[in-house]
Amino acid sequence: MLAKVFPIKLKSGMQAEAEAVVLDFAPKGPALEDGTLSFRVYRDPANPDYLLFVEHFADQAAYDAHTGSEVYRELIAGRFADLIVEFVELDHELLVSH
């Protein structure tokens, strides 16, 4: 399993718009992808203009299919990318799960 974590700093005042894009994307992309095991996005009420993506994929090929999809290109690489200042991509390997 491949785990991806993305802390994302949004442009000032873009929280609501970014959340709307993510809410639009989730059922059209990750929810329909066999290899996407989970797609979770968190907000921090104490930290405006910030989102944290935590995603789990069956393998690298599933992640590549996810990021190569038309809906990803339109909504995440397109609309969402215009709303961010920066992001960090962190890969993790599962050690323990309960």
Rank of each mutant, 00 (worst) to 15 (best):
A46M: 10
A46P: 00
A46C: 01
A46K: 10
A46F: 04
A46L: 09
A46I: 01
A46G: 09
N47Y: 07
N47I: 08
P48V: 08
P48Q: 10
P48D: 15
D49E: 05
Y50S: 13
L51Q: 12
L51G: 05
L51A: 05
L51M: 15
L52Q: 12
L52C: 13
L52D: 15
L52M: 15
L52T: 12
F53C: 07
F53A: 14
F53W: 13
F53Y: 14
V54R: 04
E55N: 11
E55A: 06
E55G: 04
E55S: 06
E55D: 14
H56Y: 12
H56S: 08
F57V: 09
F57K: 08
F57N: 13
A58C: 02
A58R: 11
D59K: 07
D59Y: 05
D59I: 06
D59W: 01
D59Q: 06
D59N: 15
D59R: 07
Q60I: 07
Q60G: 09
Q60F: 04
Q60K: 06
A61Y: 01
A61K: 13
A61W: 01
A62E: 04
A62Q: 02
A62N: 02
A62T: 10
A62I: 09
A62S: 08
Y63L: 15
Y63T: 03
Y63F: 15
Y63P: 02
Y63R: 10
D64M: 05
D64S: 11
A65T: 02
A65L: 12
A65S: 07
A65K: 11
H66T: 00
T67Q: 09
T67S: 09
G68K: 09
G68N: 06
G68R: 03
G68S: 03
G68H: 00
S69W: 00
S69P: 11
S69N: 10
E70Y: 03
E70H: 07
V71S: 01
V71N: 11
V71Q: 02
Y72T: 02
R73L: 13
R73K: 15
R73D: 13
E74H: 08
E74K: 15
E74L: 08
E74Y: 00
L75P: 05
L75Q: 14
L75H: 02
I76H: 06
A77R: 11
A77S: 15
G78L: 05
G78R: 14
G78F: 00
R79S: 11
R79M: 04
R79L: 07
F80R: 07
F80P: 10
F80H: 09
F80C: 10
A81L: 08
A81N: 14
A81P: 04
A81E: 06
A81W: 01
